[in-house]
Design a protein around this nucleic acid. Structure first.
Lengths: 213, 213
DNA sequence: AACAGAATCGACGCAGCGTTGACAATAATC
DNA sequence: GATTATTGTCAACGCTGCGTCGATTCTGTT
């Protein structure tokens, strides 16, 4: 669909890569898209609307992004970069377990970037883009894995670490799915908290954390 | 979108409900759709193709189903009815726990009806159709709940049953998501077995089943 | 035979995506 | 500052695919 091997992002029309005035338009398009996606699904959102919101013509938009999907893809990538740094940052210590923190990070990210994550999930049903979403998840799972390993080193976990990866994999997708369902409908703070507790309890028990609940 | 309050299914064009020759065509359309959906996503599948496969014109198809989504919806409903009966049937006793059986049923259903389930997941990102899929899942969760209650009565589970429902909810969606990911890509039998084990272990530990692993 | 309803089809309108080619603005080079 | 290349813009076009309509044929009933 687009190049990815070379330096730059997956999404460019016929544009050269060089700093210029039009880069503002590119940003404007990304902003417009992200904004519109807050209230519509990918299918509902139209290029006409995006272009209008960004102050240009629909066809002009195709100068910057080769296709609608590429545009959406770019929005996700941009958000992803931002989110990644957030994940690393919150790896600082606290009194709770590393696993607990990993779960908190996931739920927090859904709270803050739910509109983007929602789009990621939607797009992940298209075979060409599934990998984008899966990769993002796997990055999170890697971090969770490290957190659990660290917890083990602190003697917080019993049982063998053989299955940790497989379990965390399943747990992460459980979090994704339940968060998706919660954050794409009206819900109370209490429900969020309840979900956080459920996921936490479940994960700690499953991995063999010594009881503290 | 369509009526649902009265007797019949959600999907009818302008057709009267009466047994006739054209009912065969209706079946043919459903069959054609199910067949095409084995190899395409909903978005990729075209009404032209479905109609051709069923031996009629595209516009003729609209005599039977008001829209493409309604047609797909009908396919899911038909399969769902079939699957429901299968679920009830497999509630017969065995040496394993009820929870184990519930998980086996889920994985088995993905093995057998994966192509339909995949479509359900795809369609569930459309707000109008999410409920269809959620309802199907909830039906399964209800059964799993009963199974666990029964296991408790047999003394297989310790801890309080307070959170059972919430936990099973999360566990079910974990199963859905991981099965979706596995069954929509090439995979070996071993991977299926591994998934089954992971889900099973995780669920039993989380709910407080007495250790047998 | 006559009639009603069931079923079929071709043609139409429409939304939305992506393309093209001509043109304007901006920057680079001399 | 004039020439040229690059960057950016847009209107018009073509295309696919969905859903609709009205005219027409088929089928069974009285």
């Amino acid at each position: 669909m687009s190049k990815q091997a070379d330096g730059r992002s997956v999404s460019e029309g016929r544009r050269r890569t060089k700093m210029s005035k039009g880069d503002l338009r590119e940003q404007a398009l990304l902003d417009a898209t992200e904004e519109l996606l807050r209230r519509s699904t990918v299918a509902e959102m139209t290029m006409e609307a995006v272009a209008k919101e960004a102050g240009i013509t629909r066809s002009a938009a195709y100068f910057y992004f080769a296709s609608k999907e590429d545009l959406v893809h770019a929005v996700i990538e941009r958000a992803t970069r931002y989110i990644y740094t957030g994940i690393e940052a919150s790896a600082k210590a606290s009194d709770s377990t590393g696993l607990q923190r990993a779960i908190d990070v996931q739920v927090d990210n859904w709270r803050r970037h739910g509109h983007i994550f929602r789009v990621g999930v939607e797009l992940s049903t298209r075979s060409q883009y599934r990998q984008v979403w899966v990769s993002l998840m796997e990055h999170g799972i890697d971090l969770a894995c490290q957190a659990v390993a660290h917890d083990r080193a602190r003697g917080l976990v019993h049982g063998d670490p053989e299955q940790d990866r497989a379990q965390l994999d399943a747990i992460a997708w459980m979090g994704e799915r339940t968060c998706y369902l919660l954050f794409t409908r009206d819900h109370s703070d209490a429900e969020e908290e309840q979900l956080r507790i459920t996921l936490s309890t479940l994960a700690h028990r499953a991995l063999g954390y010594i009881a503290t609940d």
